[in-house]
Amino acid sequence: MSNQTSPRPAAVDIQFPIEPGVLELLHARLVASAADSGTLDIVYRTVDSPIGKLLLAKTDRGLLRVAYEREGFDTVLEKLSARVSPRILHSPSHLDDVASQLEEYFAGHRHRFELQLDQRLSAGFRHQVQQYLPRIDYGFTRSYKQVAEAVGNPTAVRAVGTACATNPLPIVVPCHRVLRSDGTLGGYVGGLDAKSTLLTLEHAVRATPAGGA
């Protein structure tokens, strides 16, 4: 049997119109029944923030991914589809808790996130570093070198940099609190402007080279 559909008249869309809102309603119902029947693996939404639009993705284990627009939301979703599951649907309400904690954070009212995290995108040394990062408190910073020492691998400064750069959960797992030993910013997945905005928001005291780890 042919695998092709035959071409349809271009006028079909206007000749057989669908009233506004119907597809959105059906989509919401699909999300609900897919979640009920256990066939939905990842839900996502976007939120606005002072450092631009963010993509949030979640599984039944917890928050899986926070992404900056410069990473390309489509690219990020394609990667999640390949690495975790393609059963992905857009569902803002499933991420209300994450969205509101982020909002509180950006308003300066929240200093610590209380969220379940799905850390399956991290492995090995990177995972170890990313596990450590939430121990750097709001308003404080560490150097790459201090983090390397803290995770018991003092020579792995460059690898700590890579672990920060590949953090799948930026902001929530605070890789922005890791700087160069001389106090300069280093790199950031969301761009240096985003990094310094976050540090300014947190009124961060930049670590001195001698600062305790």
Partner: peptide, 26 residues
């Protein structure tokens, strides 16, 4: 898991209207 067709959301966005037309006409 090996992915082939990408996020399902794209499929709903792209073909939701066509499928609804088929269902409504039938």
């Amino acid at each position: 898991m090996m992915n082939t067709l990408g996020p399902f959301e794209h499929c709903v966005q792209q073909y939701g209207a066509t499928v609804l037309r088929v269902c409504r006409a039938a």
